[in-house]
Design a protein around this nucleic acid. Structure first.
Lengths: 330, 330
DNA sequence: CTGTTAGCGCCTTCAC
DNA sequence: GTGAAGGCGCTAACAG
């Protein structure tokens, strides 16, 4: 009963008694075909179980209806809302997401991007700025719309949706200064963006700060360990700035396990405004960034360009804001 | 300086002074080409910045080197390790992952699968069992290898890597019985798999259990709310079985906020063995499932089939195990 | 509104 | 070991 081969547009056209191109138009450009013909073609599609071969269509039309998305690692929960909204936004416009992971390795990143380009996506969305000059050059020469995200630069490859990690660090540093804590520590991821925030923080404070660096993934366990390390460096520690809410959570658990009161004995601040942070006891002060919006804007930039719509601005700073909660209150 | 058009294999062949097909073979089947020719072609590739068009290759060769992955929602952290290892495993074998989200909607699922089939992936990996019979039929007729995951069935569409949620529920029910708790509650996601676990749990207990259903996403906030609801139903509550560690975390926070001691006043059990669960205070009892392994096995099933390797078994039960920790100890 | 023609860029099949 | 045709399935471009 199952047909030996999948139906092609050719079969549909024959079944409907029209030419190949008419069948094609009935499906992908119904405006220019008579209603009666469309009905015939539609009936033939149902009868044959036809599913269009998007590979072939893409080859000819130069529109693959795919967008490549590249993240360091999917498990970096920070980027998840961005990828999720990116996928949904693309999907609504008929695009599919091709996913790549770099595992924070520049060589892997270059090779992933290379393969991605070969698939002729209609756009490429990258988390962070592409580091290697060779890869940047290849991307530019590919003429594929590129959106770098979650960071800021005056010289993106093409377009950019992000914010300044330096400024986040500055803002946090000033906040910590204002609070008057005297023995501050940092629990920081080892990736480029976390280091940028740390640099900004230190610049605002105007002095070095004891730091526990954490290799990815930043999670609760490593947060606990980071606080242990910081307390070994500085027993009088009274505030910790963490590069993610997951780390902050770990610092909080470790602090409570040691009988420290939060924020009286130890103030804690995170980054990313994870879904749990507002609902912990005590709730966690953090930096809010609109992840879903980054994904949405990146999708729009690409879709608009593909449709020939004018692009208002190609560098979008979505900003950020410090959300003060109980873990640093008072 | 930038070339007006991307280089094609044609350009490479001309540059290298060989025929088109020789250039093609030098790149994709070097075994049958002389070393000298390969070197010439390689030089031409570097000179032109050639990147193979995988769309065109896939059209002719019937191997797109893409695998489709379908999840309910990316933010369901349960599946993340699976998707991450799936992506890495595929990537190592030269495959790319095409991502789709169903948002737990059967209609969206059907339409996403349809589009996926149209892209001619070499395999499709789906989280959960495909519900709609129409979609199952289309998948079968597409002749694309399909792997359903994170569930069990004797009649998968094609292949399957998962475990029995019914049995997880049974095992948890028996564990709760053995512990002798008398006023048990359930905080459960509303999705199909969470309901299956709940059914198994109730079957093992042999009586109905007060339940707070939680619509997706299951997170800390909804866990807190779930405990509040359960306590309203049953003030003498002494144990809660949760359908995820995120919910369990929320139940724990809410319990502690109400001055309940864990596990003395309230025992808590989760599901999924999230990365934080082992390191909380108290640590959270949970059910461990090897998510990365599911992704790895699914990738292997597809890659092996594509390479014509014999498939040992097409239904793999990866099992599970209850991990007892402090939140139910004593 | 519909049809004919000519490829998209590459790989399979066959020859040499 | 290398090369010359032909076509994968579809859609732009131009006719009618």
């Amino acid at each position: 009963m199952t047909p030996p081969k999948a139906a092609t547009l050719h079969d549909v056209a024959r079944e409907a008694g029209v030419s190949l191109i008419t069948a094609s138009r009935a499906l992908s450009n119904p405006g220019v075909v008579s209603a009666k013909t469309i009905a015939k073609v539609q009936a033939a599609v149902d009868a044959t179980g036809y599913i269009p071969n998007l590979l072939a269509g893409g080859l000819k039309s130069k529109r693959s209806l795919m967008v490549a998305g590249v993240v360091p690692a999917l498990a970096v929960s920070q980027f998840l809302p961005t990828v999720q909204s990116l996928t949904n936004e693309l999907s609504a416009a008929g695009y599919q997401l091709l996913l790549g992971q770099t595992n924070y390795d520049p060589d892997v990143e270059a090779s992933v991007l290379n393969t991605m380009i070969g698939r002729q996506p209609d756009g490429i969305v990258i988390t962070g700025l592409v580091q290697s000059e060779a890869a940047r050059d290849k991307l530019r020469r590919s003429r594929i719309p590129v959106v770098e995200t979650w960071d800021l630069s005056d010289q993106p490859i093409d377009k950019l949706v992000g914010f300044s990690h330096q400024k986040v660090g500055n803002a946090l540093g000033e906040y910590f200064l204002k609070k008057g804590w005297t023995h501050i520590g940092i629990a920081s991821g080892s990736d480029h963006r976390a280091r940028m925030r740390r640099d900004g923080f230190i610049a605002a404070l105007g002095r070095e700060v004891p730091t526990a660096f954490v290799s990815p993934p930043s999670n609760l366990e490593r947060g606990r360990r980071a606080l242990a390390d910081l307390l070994a460096l500085e027993p009088r520690l009274d505030a910790v700035c963490c590069s993610s809410d997951q780390l902050a959570h770990g610092v909080m658990v470790e602090a409570q396990a040691r009988g420290l009161r939060i924020p009286q004995d130890l103030a804690i601040c995170g980054f990313g405004n994870a879904d749990f942070s507002a609902h912990m006891v005590p709730s966690i002060t953090t930096v809010h960034v609109d992840g879903p919006d980054i994904g949405r804007l990146a999708a729009r930039l690409i879709i608009d360009q593909c449709r020939g719509a004018p692009i208002a601005e190609s560098i979008i700073d979505v900003g950020f804001r410090i959300v003060e909660r109980e873990s640093t209150a008072g």
